[in-house]
Nucleic acid binder design. Structure first.
Lengths: 149, 149
DNA sequence: CTAATTTCTCAAGTCCACTTTAGATCAAGA
DNA sequence: TCTTGATCTAAAGTGGACTTGAGAAATTAG
């Protein structure tokens, strides 16, 4: 629990700080999200900035972004130096615009749903939801949340 | 392609009308979303109302709801009779309130993200995003979009 | 120094939402 | 009628996001 003052955080420290499982943190590393250094014994050592990286991952995931997309944002951050505020601002601008698009889509679907349920036309043949769906329903296999907006 | 006028729609008809794969429609049946009757030869026959059911499934999915949750809504509809407008209105009211909650959560996260990125505090220890995340991040394994709001 | 904890790697397992494959049967047009 | 295309079942495969398990080595508390 005592984070080594000089050597950085252990994977357990990071897990405690973020609430993530140790296995998840290792998993993210294999997907290029973190790049910890190793100590003499081969154990991973993290910097404080990695807490922030993982926070971003968790936020983005809860908003429906996939890991590969998130990893894409992460490549916009320096791998072995703590990102500056400018780094975070840059990647979060694109992120924010995608969130906005997602909110707008959700709102328009909700509003149209009201109309469609009300008029009894909830059919892909005539319903106004048809086109938005066509655009939103692209993507590979697996759960199709609001990915790829 | 010629939908049997008396016998209802074939699974292929339904696939054409909804844009779903035949295999997906069969899969949904195993999850209790559709309950087609069988003809003499053992082939599935659907009613027009099933197009609407599948439309609802697709809409709900694109909004981040999981199949089991959607199946839950579907049990609120009559299995072997075409749902009335009142049936649809009833289940869509609950649905709509969940969508609203989802939109609100997304908006508040977006707004706080602006603040957190700006002030450089994007850390679970101090960031205002912490608590909303705690609530949103519950759930089993697998992709964790905005399920379980 | 020893015992208890952590961490290491790597392979395999899990859940969700489907798709693919295989072999057989059913339905419909020429 | 015949043949082509649709549908049937059951089982296995896929991709995303992780978790679990096994055995070994490193770290830390007492």
């Amino acid at each position: 629990m005592t984070p080594s003052p000089s050597g950085g955080l252990t994977i357990g420290d990071l897990a405690d700080r973020t609430g993530l499982a140790v296995s998840a943190i290792r998993f993210y590393e294999t997907h290029g999200i973190l790049h910890p250094v190793r100590n003499a014994g081969g154990h991973r050592r993290y910097g404080r900035a990695d807490i922030r990286r993982l926070s971003f991952v968790m936020i983005a995931q809860s908003m429906g972004f996939g890991l590969s997309e998130i990893a894409g944002y992460m490549t916009g951050l320096p791998a072995h130096r703590a990102p500056s505020k400018a780094d975070w601002t840059r990647i979060s601008e694109d992120f924010r615009s995608k969130i906005d698009a997602r909110i707008t889509l959700l709102q328009s679907m909700r509003d149209r749903l009201d109309g469609c349920i009300g008029c009894g036309c909830l059919s892909l043949e005539t319903c106004a939801l048809h086109n938005p769906l066509d655009e939103a329903a692209k993507g590979g296999t697996g759960p199709r949340a609001l990915r790829e907006v």
